[in-house]
Amino acid sequence: MVWKISDETAFDTLGEEVRLTINGIPIRAPQNQSLLVTARANGFEIPTLCYHRDLPSEGQCRLCVVEIGEHPHTQIVNSCTYPTSPGLVVQTHSEKVMQARRIVLELLLARTPKAKLIQELAAAHGVYESRFKTDDPEELCILCGLCVRTCREVVGVSAISMKGRTPDKQVATPFLEKSPACIGCGSCAFICPTNVIPYTEKNGVRTIWGRDFELQACTVCGNYIEPKYQLEHWAKITGDPVETFFVCKDCR
């Protein structure tokens, strides 16, 4: 079992209500809820890149960091995985936190200079250009892993994963070939915050990760619904006959 932390629960189960302070304001929240969820629920905005409420948090981007503890014994932790506990003192916008976020964004801006979301987030933090080095000016992937987690946890097929480590880490299909597990659903492309996963639809064929998927047309209106593979996957999960899914949402 891998440790999972989702939107609702930071630990296996939420505990009783505890009191803590965020930015000096007393807050009540269930014990073991993530600080990110707690802060957002109370109106404190924390920027994130790799977080999604329906996915287990793994803490890759480090943008959601907050400062906990009291001076001088404070500590920077990522709020998406850190649980609430009684008496915890949290700062979401201290100087230390803002400096860490600025450097993280400056590093990402150098990595993906053309990624719109990164440009906007960086600008919102006062970072307009990066002092760091750009390897590939066309790079768009920030390695947040949302696509990998969505494919594995939500779609439930695991067609893509991370390959390698730091110097050449990338999201890839096994052996960089057409992934036999892929059902062409496009969830990875949909969830991607920087729109890096190429995805086209032409003449009833969807192309993603180098593989072509024939789209099923709605038996009523004739509009394309989803790839046949995906509908078969749905049928397998639900136990319904695959034909159930041959009618589009609008015609049902």
Binding site: E58, C61, L143, M162, R165, T166
Partner: peptide, 10 residues
């Protein structure tokens, strides 16, 4: 470096 988090990797 495993390359998971931004500060270490980049």
């Amino acid at each position: 470096s495993c390359g998971k988090c931004t500060p270490c990797r980049e």
